[in-house]
Design a protein around this nucleic acid. Structure first.
Lengths: 153, 153
DNA sequence: ACTATATAGTACGATATCGCACCATTCAAG
DNA sequence: CTTGAATGGTGCGATATCGTACTATATAGT
């Protein structure tokens, strides 16, 4: 029997791929967090950054979906951000069950400072890949991510 | 002033890259863990898999370094594996401070079964990337990882 | 040998993460 | 309207993760 469309052991290859991705994720996360103040972790920053890139006023559930985490995890993360005064939870005028998350001035300032303090780490490793390699990688990874997303039914 | 060697905002590109990597890491981890029995998580599987790929008898510290996690985390993971009878901790004959981690038969069986149960998920998304794309991606990611590793001084 | 330092592992406490169960509100069916 | 199902959010408990501090052993310098 000739080899099939996907070949015999693509499985092993994907294993390796996800392994590499997992390690880099862990390394980058550790780097990020080393720059963040005391008890703050990557999700704290990520949520704030997301609120700036898209728009204020997302609901907790929207955020949970955007980050592919359970809603209880998002509740916890948001509680941390609110405790630190970086976001503000308001009632959702359109739905009494729901809330909205709004950035405070402190939240925006925090984000700017965090990015500024992270930049040196990025530039230190920026010689590993050419900019167009990075861009190509992003495109390919995005393709893979969307495929995985779709497979979650 | 003309643009520098790395250009103006590679930072943003790398941000995006790490973001994509983080999301895929999370998605793949969630998929993996959905297939694993009750309280088992990815690190449990990863350690067993690593012990088979390299060799039995690694020390906890070697494993912690291989996975870039604090040694306390590895202690915890190994305790879980031992409790489930998948590995065996023995004294290190060469160093009384140290231990060795050995796979049990149950551990090897578990790994085979886990891989078998994971394979369908992999094949389901294996049409997202061509095999040589995967291979190229692995190579590029490995380059990035090594660079990041080196930057950790 | 003797002491200072480094190394391997663990105990403990603080969060993070997440599944399950629950409440309030909304929506759909009649 | 009324009622049952769906949805948004949280409380709670079980682990996971990790930093700090500690013990035991090994190693280096004298």
């Amino acid at each position: 029997m000739p080899d099939t469309k996907t070949g015999p052991d693509v499985t092993g290859l994907y294993f390796e791929l996800f392994n590499e991705i997992g390690i880099i994720s862990q390394l980058s996360r550790a780097s990020f967090e080393a720059r963040l103040p005391d008890g703050m972790v990557l999700p704290h920053f990520s949520v704030i950054n997301h609120l700036i890139r898209v728009q204020d006023g997302r609901t907790p559930l929207q955020l949970a979906r955007a980050f592919q985490v359970p809603k209880t995890s998002m509740t916890h993360t948001l509680a941390g951000l609110e405790k630190r005064g970086l976001v503000e939870m308001r009632a959702n005028p359109d739905d009494a069950r729901s809330k909205q998350v709004w950035l405070t001035e402190a939240g925006r300032t925090f984000r700017d400072e965090a990015i500024a303090s992270l930049a040196p780490d990025v530039t230190e490793i920026s010689d590993a890949l050419e900019p167009d390699e990075v861009a190509e990688m992003i495109a390919t990874l995005a393709r893979l991510r969307k495929r995985m997303d779709a497979a979650r039914d």
